[in-house]
């Protein structure tokens, strides 16, 4: 299980750069990110090397920020690799709310971040389906 940082951003010039600068100044390294956007606002989701510290920094800068549990899942870095993994999740009846790619890779595979209902319960189901889930410490230090 890994900790994801989510924050509320207005669709306004310079906001994303501002967040990245705030984190960069404090030595936080962004490892993966995605933005879910609507017309007026977006939710920025981040995987960073030190989620607790990043959370405190963003809070101190008055951002609306929350921490969410997500899973980092290994996916074969070949054509059809992600499809195969998702099919396994379907069979295990695990619903993916959202998903995005991780910037780095482990030695064997690519990584994707997934958000599912009840992540704690899902971990064992997914592992039983033969998919490798990484621990937080493994991911933050990648």
């Amino acid at each position: 299980m890994i900790k994801q940082i989510s924050l509320f951003l207005e669709n306004k010039k310079g906001r994303l750069a501002h967040v990245c600068r705030v984190l960069g100044n404090e030595g936080i390294n962004i490892r993966a990110l995605s933005i879910a956007d609507t017309t007026d606002f977006g939710v920025l989701r981040l995987i960073v090397n030190n989620p607790e510290k990043a959370y405190e920094i963003l809070k101190a800068h008055n951002f609306a920020v929350s921490m969410t549990d997500v899973l980092a899942m290994e996916v074969a870095d070949t054509p059809g690799g992600l499809a195969g993994t998702l099919e396994k999740l379907d069979e295990a009846e695990i619903n993916v709310e959202y998903m995005y790619a991780f910037l780095g890779t482990t030695s064997q595979a690519a990584l994707v971040i997934i958000r599912v209902e009840n992540p704690e319960k899902a971990v064992s189901v997914i592992r039983r389906a033969g998919i490798n889930i990484l621990e937080g410490e493994q991911v933050y230090s990648l």
């Binding site: 994801q4 989510s6 924050l7 509320f8 879910a36 609507t38 606002f41 939710v43 989701r45 809070k59 008055n62 951002f63 609306a64 920020v65 929350s66 969410t68 958000r115």
Partner: peptide
């Protein structure tokens, strides 16, 4: 203004 306490990760909740 969005409340920092009430903010969740969900876009749907905000909409």
């Amino acid at each position: 203004e969005v409340s920092p306490e009430m903010f969740s990760d969900q876009v749907r909740g905000l909409e």
